[in-house]
Nucleic acid binder design. Structure first.
Length: 280
DNA sequence: ACGCCCGCCTGTAAGC
DNA sequence: TGCTTACAGGCGGGCG
């Protein structure tokens, strides 16, 4: 579910909420969310008593720096994961709450995930790049890493892939998923199936700008919550960027630029939306 | 390389 | 009113 703008929104709030807090206790329910550890006890043991030093993001991963042994708590929300900050342990427990972290002062952080594609694990900072290949192989960060558009053009030209799947390839660029790839391609005026090595210099610039500006705007609006409102921030509030969507989830509606009807199609098995006039 | 298909899960909506 | 099917913000693996 959550892509870079949603994860970054959560990261910023989490930073304000949990840095310098100390973990008092941890509960794990079910077997799916904590699955890389030999046992739940090992995971819990590496968290209890630790103080949170930092909250970082790498692509769609959240990295919680801990004060002991340079350990990091890694969290990925998958399709349906939510982090909820609650002030009191007495607050009713939502269905599908799989991990509960209680701090010594003030409340809990709860991980709720109906589809259980998300996960949490603790690893050594040094091992992030060795023991966790998904993290090690992540591409550049489209918001944090400054890159010239000429370098971006070189990266595109090195590949021969359709633009949409390439934007969604976490090894190429980290953090973009199904919603934002469509929005970025509309912003750039490019069609999903353009080969990455077919772009003119001007098209490369448009794609780079479209990527940076779309994601930055989405962060300002605290991410996108679709009709099911599955994406909620740390405090249970919905995002606001869906109102700015140009194509995603707008099948049959008029293009905001040219009034032509937005169409829906499948690209790599995923629902995709585009304007056939504005994107070529 | 790249594109496609599957599996991993639960919940909801649409179709019959 | 069922029951069945399709689909949902992700990702890894296998196959051709």
């Amino acid at each position: 579910m959550p892509e870079l703008p949603e994860v970054e929104t959560i990261r910023r709030d989490l930073e304000k909420e949990i840095v310098s807090k100390r973990v008092k206790s941890v509960e794990v329910h079910g077997t799916r969310s904590v699955r890389r550890h030999g046992s739940d006890e090992e995971f819990i043991g590496r968290l209890e008593g630790r103080k949170v030093l930092s909250v970082k993001r790498s692509g769609k991963y959240l990295l919680i720096g801990l004060d002991a042994d340079q350990d990091v708590l890694v969290m990925h929300l998958g399709m349906s994961g939510q982090l909820l900050r609650v002030k009191s342990p007495k607050e009713p427990m939502a269905k599908h709450t799989h991990v509960v972290i209680t701090f010594t002062q003030a409340g809990q952080l709860r991980f709720v995930d109906p589809r259980t594609f998300g996960e949490l694990f603790v690893t050594r900072q040094d091992d992030l790049e060795k023991a966790v290949p998904e993290l090690a192989h992540l591409g550049f960060d489209p918001v944090d890493d400054v890159m010239s558009w000429t370098r971006f053009g070189a990266l595109l030209a090195n590949r021969h892939a359709q633009l949409k799947p390439l934007l969604m390839d976490q090894r190429f660029v980290a953090g973009i998923g199904n919603i934002y790839s469509d929005e970025i391609l509309f912003a750039a005026g490019l069609k999903y199936d353009r080969p990455s090595d077919s772009l003119s210099a001007q098209e490369v610039r448009r794609l780079y700008r479209g990527m940076v500006e779309t994601l930055s705007e989405a962060i300002k609006h605290r991410g996108s919550s679709l009709a099911d409102e599955q994406y909620r921030d740390l405090f249970g509030e919905v995002g606001d960027y869906q109102g700015q969507h140009q194509v995603y989830d707008r099948e049959g509606l008029a293009c905001r630029r040219c009034r032509h009807e937005i169409v829906r199609l499948k690209v790599g098995g995923r629902s995709s939306f585009m304007c056939e006039v504005c994107q070529v």
